[in-house]
Structures are given as C-alpha cells and as structure tokens.
C-alpha cells in the first residue's frame, strides 16, 4: 500500500521535472549562452538539494518498479513481495549513500 502511494507520488513528480528538463535542454538550440545561463540556476545550493530529492525519487521509483515487474512476472514474486520491498529500501539507502556525498561535494564544494 505505502509502496504504491510512494510510486505514484514519485512518478508524478518525476514527470513534471521531465517536462521542464526537456524545455531547459532545448535551449541548447537557442544559443550556448542562453543554455548556460539557465542551466547555471541548477548549480545553486537550493537547486542542488532539489536535485538530491529528484534523484531520490528516481532511485525509489526505479527499484520499486523492478519489484513490481518481479511481482507480476516471477512465479514467486507475490510470495516475496514484502521481502522485496525491504530489499528496495535497502538498495535505495545504499544507492543514495553512494550518490549524496559525491553530489553534495559537487554542489557545496569549492570549485
């Protein structure tokens, strides 16, 4: 139930970011300096934290989506669905533990 709610909320959020992200990337076709000015806003600390949240949403949606595929197509998927949910959460923690320090270093680091 909660995995289903979280899957919806993260999917909804990712979709709206995707719309904005295609629009901002399309500025490469306007002029290099226009693109650089807009993508520059992605580099401030508040956006950096937003990006961490976006990546968290994507990582959860990805691992839980694979869990849904296993529930639907693997014969023992339904039996192990709850155990797989804990695996999803564990993989989420491990992936974010790998990503966050590196990303926060990029965002808050000196250069």
């Amino acid at each position: 139930m909660w995995s289903w709610v979280a899957h919806r909320i993260t999917g909804f959020a990712i979709f709206f970011f995707l719309l904005v992200h295609v629009l901002d990337t399309s500025l490469v076709r306007v002029a290099p300096e226009t693109y650089n000015a807009v993508i520059g806003t992605y580099k401030n600390p508040i956006m950096g934290i937003g990006e961490a949240g976006l990546v968290a949403a994507i990582v959860f949606h990805a691992f839980n989506g694979l869990r849904i595929v296993l529930i639907d197509f693997w014969a023992k998927g339904v039996k192990y669905q709850k155990r797989m949910f804990w695996i999803v959460l564990a993989l989420f923690v491990v992936t974010m533990a790998g990503f966050l320090p590196r990303h926060l270093m990029h965002v808050f680091g000196g250069n």
Binding site: V28, P32, G48, I58, F99, R102, H106
Partner: peptide, 23 residues
C-alpha cells in the same frame, strides 16, 4: 536514466560541470 545520472551528476565534475560545451 541511471547511466544518464551517473555520467552527468557523478562522474566528472557533476552538476557544476554541465554547460553547452558538455552537452
């Protein structure tokens, strides 16, 4: 998407290295 995120945000200079020349 994991490949995209790794190349753009983790490997190299991360989000601060993204500009027109990077794309």
């Amino acid at each position: 998407i994991f490949g995209h995120l790794f190349v753009n945000l983790v490997a190299g200079g991360g989000v601060k290295a993204i500009d027109f020349a990077f794309v």
